[in-house]
């Protein structure tokens, strides 16, 4: 299990988390190699389908990273994203993929350290959960 390097897709809002990731990079703060950042104009743009597609394509986990409460550039895109993540978690439990593979997180643009730490923690959680079960099933079926 220890050699399992989860692939985690981060949908990062341009106004906060994406910048925070940049800050983390410039500060030389390390975060795991399996992190794949997708820049979005707002987490409100993150359709539930994006998350499901990421999982279908084999991602082990998905983070939706938006602004702090009250800081959304588009007023409440982050809250809408949070509501969608909540519904997605329920769906993922229902189909036994597990709700733990998706999380909504919030931070501000300057919080490079928060980004790095959040990414590390989430990757550790996904490491515990193990690989996306569809990969295992697919390899068995093959």
């Amino acid at each position: 299990m220890s050699d399992f390097e989860p692939v985690v897709v981060v949908f990062a809002c341009d106004y906060c988390a994406y910048t925070a990731a940049d800050v983390a990079g410039r500060m030389n703060l390390e975060y795991p190699a399996g992190i794949r950042i997708v820049r979005v104009p707002c987490t409100g743009k993150v359709d539930s389908l994006y998350v499901l597609r990421a999982l279908e394509k084999g991602a082990d986990g998905v983070l939706v990273a938006g602004c702090l409460d009250g800081d959304c550039h588009f007023k409440n895109g982050n809250l809408r994203a949070a509501a969608r993540v909540k519904a997605l978690k329920r769906l993922l439990d229902e189909i036994n993929i597990g709700s733990g593979r998706v999380e909504m997180v919030q931070m501000s643009a300057g919080q490079g350290a928060v980004f790095a730490e959040t990414a590390r923690n989430f990757v550790a959680t996904v490491q515990e959960l193990g690989p996306n079960p569809i990969k295992h099933a697919a390899s068995q079926a093959a």
Binding site: L55, E56, L91, I95, I97, A137
Partner: peptide, 9 residues
């Protein structure tokens, strides 16, 4: 998507 994931699982 959910059906494909659920069945693959």
């Amino acid at each position: 998507a959910a059906l494909r994931l659920g069945r693959l699982q």
